[in-house]
């Protein structure tokens, strides 16, 4: 994406040890210039440590971290051309909103009038015009989040790091902020590195994402690649819901013995007498229970060799209990191309 092809961030076999614990274990990846890149994983998976390695709050125990082609080992945070939006916002409580946003400019000795103008522009970008004189304690969580974003963006960093910035917001606000962050990123054209444990967030916003587990990267790819072709059992389970099958069921669905992942929404529920088209695997079973989820209905079907979960669109309205009553005999159909073979877990 970048003009000269030098990655915005590159990790070369980076490890970070805390005592005996390998928080980051020989990780290598590249983030392209201008990309929205997410690091997804459960807590303790090493994603935040990777972010802190880019920011300079941590130094690698071995390996190299490059920002725009320059080895930043030993470079302190204040000398790096990256800025961070912190999980707890980390606003300066004794300064006004405006002073918070201007802080980086003040440090760089930008004249007062100039930095005030820039701060106001940036507050407008995050839709906080008119709050220049407020104290952070007078703002809501969502507003503080925006101040933190403006405070980082006003410095026009080459890379913006976001550490679970939406984690403390409620669901509705979080969804709005996802759209907004994405559109701000397109406007300013800065590389965003986004840490989250929320797979929905990572899928919705990222150009590419890396799935972390135990200090290593399990898979890197576009949201569709990671979702449709999970490289491992961990990825299949962590990103979205999935049916993991092996043994007899694996043989039936995949055609060969092995472990497979099938997304619940790729499976169709039909009547037992429906005939399959080519390339479609079938399983006969009995509905065990259904769970009403609003937009969708989750149906658990007992089949020979185990259980399969199916997620159906709630097209009929109601709670779906009439057509999907427990005990109903059904035939499940899934196209073979949606049955994803999994590599042996490490």
């Amino acid at each position: 994406m970048g003009g000269n092809g030098v990655p915005a961030v590159a990790f070369e076999a980076v490890s970070r040890l805390f005592g005996e614990v390998r928080a980051v274990d020989r990780v290598s990846f590249e983030i392209a210039d201008g990309e929205f890149f997410s690091m997804l994983g459960p807590s303790g998976s090493g994603k935040t440590t990777c972010l802190r390695l880019i920011a300079g709050f941590e130094q690698p125990s071995s390996g190299r971290v490059l920002v725009h082609g320059e080895d930043v080992s030993g470079v302190p945070p204040y000398a790096r051309d990256v800025n961070t939006v912190f999980q707890d916002y980390a606003l300066f409580p004794h300064m006004s909103v405006g002073e918070n946003v201007e802080y980086g400019l003040m440090i760089r000795k930008v004249p007062r009038a100039d930095r005030q103008r820039q701060a106001e522009e940036m507050l407008a970008l995050v839709k906080l015009d008119g709050l220049y004189g407020r104290k952070p304690s007078q703002l809501s969580g969502g507003q503080r989040q925006r101040v933190a974003l403006a405070r980082a963006l006003v410095n026009h960093p080459r890379v913006l790091l976001l550490d679970e910035p939406l984690g403390a917001l409620d669901l509705k606000l979080r969804e709005n902020m996802q759209h907004e962050l994405k559109s701000i990123q397109r406007q300013v054209g800065i590389t965003f590195v986004y840490v989250t444990h929320d797979q929905g967030e990572a899928l919705a916003m990222s150009d590419r994402l890396a799935v972390f587990n135990h200090g290593r990267i399990e898979q890197i790819g576009t949201p569709a690649e990671v979702y449709d072709h999970p490289a491992s059992e961990f990825v299949a389970g962590f990103v979205g819901q999935t049916n993991l099958v092996d043994g007899y069921l694996g043989q039936r669905l995949g055609g060969f013995p092995g472990r497979y992942a099938v997304r619940p929404e790729r499976i169709r529920i039909t009547t037992p007498d429906t005939l399959p088209e080519g390339g479609v695997a079938i399983l006969d079973g009995v509905i065990r229970n259904t769970t009403y989820l609003g937009a969708t209905v989750r149906v658990v079907v007992a089949v020979e060799g185990g259980e399969i979960t199916v997620v159906e669109q709630n097209l009929q309205g109601g709670d779906g209990s009439a057509s999907r009553a427990s005990g109903t005999e059904v035939r499940l159909m899934v196209e073979r191309r949606h049955v994803q073979a999994l590599a042996e877990s490490a």
């Binding site: 920011a55 912190f86 980086g104 405070r151 410095n155």
Partner: peptide
């Protein structure tokens, strides 16, 4: 995190001490 934020925004340790 507030102290880290100051460094992140370009302040040297001395500036962080004075300003934050």
């Amino acid at each position: 995190s507030v102290i880290e934020a100051s460094g992140d925004l370009g302040a040297t340790p001395g500036q962080t001490f004075r300003n934050v």
